[in-house]
Simulated assay, not measured.
Amino acid sequence: WRNHGSAEFQAQFSAKQAKKGRKGGLISDSSHGGKARSATYSDLRQEALKLHIQGMKQKDIALKLNVSDRTIRTWIKKRKVQA
């Protein structure tokens, strides 16, 4: 542990972490901040909001779209905040 404060160790550690970061970013597509995964639910969100506007209950929307009712509440809440 006494060597962890040395400049040489810090340089090696930084280089190793940077290499891991580049590798992880390419593999997981995390450089987009989760947008890639989020985009897969875009159609479901739009459908949920449409059904909500039509007056359907959140629990019924969740059953119809095969997602949790908590997810529906979150989507609707986020939409109200944006509007």
Score class of each variant (00 low, 15 high):
Trp1Leu: 12
Trp1Cys: 02
Arg2Met: 07
Arg2Pro: 03
Arg2Cys: 06
Asn3Trp: 05
Asn3Ser: 08
His4Cys: 09
His4Trp: 12
Gly5Tyr: 06
Gly5Val: 13
Ala7Arg: 05
Ala7Leu: 06
Ala7Pro: 10
Glu8Arg: 06
Gln10His: 08
Gln10Pro: 07
Ala11Glu: 08
Ala11Gln: 04
Phe13Trp: 14
Gln17Leu: 12
Gln17Asp: 04
Ala18Phe: 03
Lys20Glu: 09
Lys20Ser: 09
Gly21Thr: 15
Gly21Lys: 15
Gly21Ile: 12
Gly21Ala: 13
Gly21Asp: 09
Gly21Pro: 03
Lys23Ile: 03
Lys23Met: 01
Gly24Tyr: 12
Gly25Glu: 06
Leu26Lys: 15
Ile27Asp: 01
Ser28Phe: 15
Ser28Lys: 15
Ser28Gln: 14
Asp29Val: 06
Ser30Met: 03
Ser30Gly: 05
Ser30Val: 07
Ser31Arg: 13
Ser31Pro: 04
Ser31Asn: 13
Ser31Ile: 11
His32Cys: 09
Gly33Lys: 09
Gly34Gln: 09
Gly34Arg: 11
Lys35Thr: 04
Ala36Cys: 05
Ala36Asp: 07
Ala36Leu: 08
Arg37Cys: 08
Ser38Lys: 07
Ala39Met: 15
Ala39Asp: 14
Thr40Tyr: 07
Thr40Gly: 10
Tyr41Ala: 11
Tyr41Asp: 04
Tyr41Asn: 12
Tyr41Ser: 09
Tyr41Gln: 11
Ser42Phe: 03
Asp43Lys: 14
Asp43Ala: 13
Leu44Glu: 05
Leu44Tyr: 05
Leu44Ala: 13
Arg45Thr: 04
Arg45His: 14
Gln46Trp: 02
Gln46Leu: 15
Glu47Val: 06
Ala48Leu: 03
Ala48Trp: 00
Lys50Glu: 03
Lys50Ser: 12
Leu51Arg: 11
Leu51Glu: 05
His52Pro: 02
His52Asp: 02
His52Arg: 11
Ile53Phe: 12
Gln54Gly: 00
Gly55Tyr: 14
Gly55Cys: 05
Gly55Asp: 06
Met56Leu: 06
Lys57Thr: 03
Lys57Ser: 03
Gln58Met: 14
Lys59Ala: 00
Lys59Glu: 01
Ile61Asn: 00
Ile61Phe: 04
Ala62Ser: 02
Ala62Tyr: 15
Leu63Trp: 10
Lys64Pro: 01
Lys64Ile: 09
Lys64Asn: 02
Leu65Arg: 03
Val67Leu: 06
Val67Asp: 00
Ser68His: 14
Ser68Asn: 09
Ser68Glu: 07
Asp69Arg: 13
Asp69Ile: 10
Arg70Ser: 11
Arg70His: 13
Arg70Asn: 08
Arg73Tyr: 12
Thr74Pro: 00
Thr74His: 08
Thr74Leu: 12
Trp75Val: 02
Trp75Ser: 01
Trp75Thr: 00
Ile76Thr: 08
Lys77Val: 03
Lys77Ser: 15
Lys77Ile: 06
Lys78Met: 09
Lys78Gly: 01
Arg79Ile: 05
Arg79Met: 12
Arg79Thr: 06
Arg79Pro: 00
Arg79Cys: 07
Val81Gly: 00
Gln82Lys: 13
Gln82Tyr: 04
Gln82Ala: 15
Ala83Trp: 05
Ala83Arg: 08
Ala83His: 12
